[in-house]
Design a protein around this nucleic acid. Sequence first.
RNA 1: GGUCCCGUCGUCUAGGGGUUAGGACAGGAGAUUCUCAGUCUCUAAACAGCGGUUCGAUUCCGCUCGGGACUACCA
Length: 512
Amino acid sequence: MYTQVSLGGMFPSGRVNMEVRVRYAPSPTGLQHIGGIRTALFNYFFARSFGGKFVLRVEDTDRTRYSDEALDDLYGTLDWLGIRWDEGPVVGGPYGPYIQSERYEIYRKYAQQLIDKGMAYYCFCSSERLDDLRREQEDSHSSQQGYDRHCRNLSKEEIQAYLDKGIKPVVRLKVPEEGSTTFHDVLMGDITRENKDISPDPILLKSDGFPTYHLANVIDDHLMHITHILRAQEWIPSGPLHVILYNAFGWEPPVYCHLPMVMGNDGHKLSKRHGSTSVRDFRDKGYLPEAIINYVTLVGWSLDGEKQFFSKYELEKVFSIEKINKAPGVFDYKKLDWFNGQYIREKDDKELAGLLIPYLDRENLLDGMSEDEKLNRVIAIVPLVKDRLKVLSDVCDIARFIFKDPGTPEAKMLCAKGHTPQQELKALEMAYPIIKAGLLEGKADAAIEEELCELAPKLGIKVNGVFMPIRASVTGSQVSPPLFDSIRALGYDDAFKRMERGLEVLGSTSAC
RNA sequence: GGUCCCGUCGUCUAGGGGUUAGGACAGGAGAUUCUCAGUCUCUAAACAGCGGUUCGAUUCCGCUCGGGACUACCA
């Protein structure tokens, strides 16, 4: 036995030198899902790591669920993530069109080919009959599931009779009733299924003339010279079916690699009820593409279990299919938050300011400022917020007090934990002149801070009790960025006015 | 119901016939500190179970159990 680099199972017919061509083929029926985008990423990285081609194909053969918005979202999302496709809609390519609805005639032609070969047939069953059949099977717990092959052996005359009646047929695949079908999966190994357990004669061409996924995907993958199919594990059950189709056409199937699914914390397929699932949602909340890419590729894949930060560029080099995990993975929102925070902290102030402005704008906090003013003001506050952001939109809550008067605070708000309004009134009365004078004289923060701290023992309260009434007066909140920085960001005049207002509130309060 | 896939800390994972089973997030404790973050240190936490094979299994095999997917004129 010789040892050899075993890329064997990874290439069709063991051809190791061929160009890798993969595709991401979503259907534009909704916003791009985190799970879908992970499939796109895996395909993209796999292609890049082999210097191959990443093809985008739009599977819009279900015209009832199609939406323009979904298509825009697909392009917008990939663009935002920085995932460019080598061939596909917009950019074109040698095997187009890349939008399935524009390939209508192609599918009809190949379906006819199968009919001519006797490997597919017309079916005239009404959807009512099919519904009844399904219901019957369910009620009787029949082991026989699916279509009963009613039209499988219609004579020429019978077919013509139906056609004459104007009934629009569907085309069904003749799945062999005997034997078994095996396909190879890079991760899973060989997967075999008895032919009798394969969906009995699935529809290839719908009555509207459009193909179903099964037909379209096989034809397109072949015509587009796709070498590897990386798709979600939910497709495993139809793997043998697709192989039967390839065989029926006399084509060689590509190499399969079924990706583990992305689940919610309850172990079910990630869906809306678990939280945000569309990339657009994450983008709106202020997640960075770097964080999404990094985290999402880490569910179901890891390099060595140690390294956890990966740029897109690195992944294009280092991604490998054999390191994909077989087991489904739970999408951890908290961990995404952590990654996002890490990437936010890596930004320089100017870039981060540019990212933050749209969020501040969205809440009208920058009204009346020119673009230059906005940039300068926001750059100035970035140091205060940077460490406190999990998502970009957090900036609004953290920095709102700088741009908008929080209004007269409640007395309770002004009191540190365990301190009475009387104590806090005294504290603020004494602290205010110190801080005002200190700031105006340009004293060092540390010096002012020391003076304020010395107040605490004199008043018999905690240091926190000295700072809280100031903080809460100025920011309208018990949590804020560091006090002196906050005051400077706001401006002395406003800050002093708010402290005076705090004094009034405490002065007119007896208890809280 | 049938078919298929999966099974290491709560979560993402590394590892693999003999290891103190490693890392990260989340959790807990502490340090820093004007609050909140951030940062640093420490800590708790796993091989689903049962049978084999073997000198030795978490690792290989089988079964059980658990979880999931599919079972559309949707993809």
